[in-house]
Simulated scan of single mutants.
Amino acid sequence: MSLQIYNLSQPWGHHMPEWPSTPGINVHVKKFHAKDGVYMTEFEGIMHRGTHMDAPLHVTENTPCLMGYPLWRFFGTGVAVSIPKKKWEVITAEDLENARPKIREGDIVMINTGMHTKMADTDEYYAYSPGIYRDGAQWLVDKKVKMVGYDVQANDHPMATKLVDHGLGPTHPHLIEEYKEYFGRDPKEDFPDWEAGHKTLMVKGSIPGIENVGGDLNKVTGKRCTFMAFPWRWQGGEGCAIRVLAVIDPDQTFRFEKG
């Protein structure tokens, strides 16, 4: 028996690509070997950067923080599915229903749109990304999945975020006119509510949502795997950088014993 372990997280650190909002991760060297005999760094920034998990508290007041998720949600069997998407396309309930391997009740689900290979400090990745919205998120809630990860910029389509006329936005008002020209509709016609994907999945469904999945995702796509992704034990935490791992047993003989 030889288990194969795959990393599904994007690199994290100074100068990493970041969602276009608050200045993010800055790493400062506080001690170094030539001077101090030890090496120590300090970082400042918000947790919603790179591969990370959100809590309901991130999007809705008086809802659970990271500690509100039971541990069983962070470990288990699931699938990595290929749902290729282009600029501003939506991950739909139909896409999820037709995905293969079939998504089963209780699965952890990793969605590969192809965008993780394009992660960079660019409009292509952040402003023009595909994404999920309410209907797709509701399908996942109805399926009673354990946890969901996406290889895109957020748990929501960019037209459901403050990049356009939602919440504190628009921070990128030019996208409204570009969307109108591209589809012939105002983005609020297609995405009337602010971060409905987040709120449906996490607040209504109590399901952790992982943003910016990447790394070896292509190597496990189309396979049934064991997944794990654990946030910090942080009371009051609204989000947390995480390491996502997928484990495959090529012989299909390894099993956890009952006990």
Rank of each mutant, 00 (worst) to 15 (best):
E44A: 05
I83F: 11
T117K: 15
G169D: 11
H172P: 01
I248E: 07
M47T: 08
G167K: 06
R100A: 15
A137L: 09
P20V: 07
A154I: 02
G106Y: 04
F32V: 03
Y179C: 09
M53L: 09
E61M: 14
V220I: 15
Y182T: 07
M228G: 14
E195F: 09
V29A: 07
H14Q: 14
V90A: 06
E97D: 15
A196T: 08
V59E: 01
D151L: 14
Y150E: 04
G197L: 11
T92I: 08
E89W: 02
K31M: 12
P84Y: 06
W72H: 15
P231I: 02
C225Y: 01
P170N: 08
P17I: 00
N212H: 12
M16E: 13
M228S: 14
P11Y: 08
P192C: 07
L140H: 04
K85E: 01
V244H: 04
R185Q: 09
T161N: 01
M53V: 06
Y126G: 06
E18C: 07
G237C: 07
G209A: 08
K102L: 12
C240D: 12
P84C: 10
P64Q: 10
G214V: 11
V152N: 10
G197D: 00
H116E: 04
A93R: 02
R243W: 07
M16I: 08
E42A: 04
D251Y: 05
V109E: 00
F75T: 13
G114D: 04
D216R: 05
E89V: 13
S21K: 14
Y179L: 11
N218W: 14
A120Q: 11
Y39W: 13
N212I: 13
G106V: 00
C65H: 09
F43L: 05
I25L: 08
V141R: 08
L8G: 01
V148S: 02
G136H: 07
V145A: 00
I25W: 00
T51Q: 00
D95S: 06
T77G: 15
R73S: 13
G169K: 15
E211D: 09
R185T: 12
A229C: 12
T226N: 12
T122E: 01
K258C: 05
E181Q: 12
T171D: 06
D156N: 15
R73G: 10
W12T: 04
E18I: 04
I132Q: 00
K180F: 06
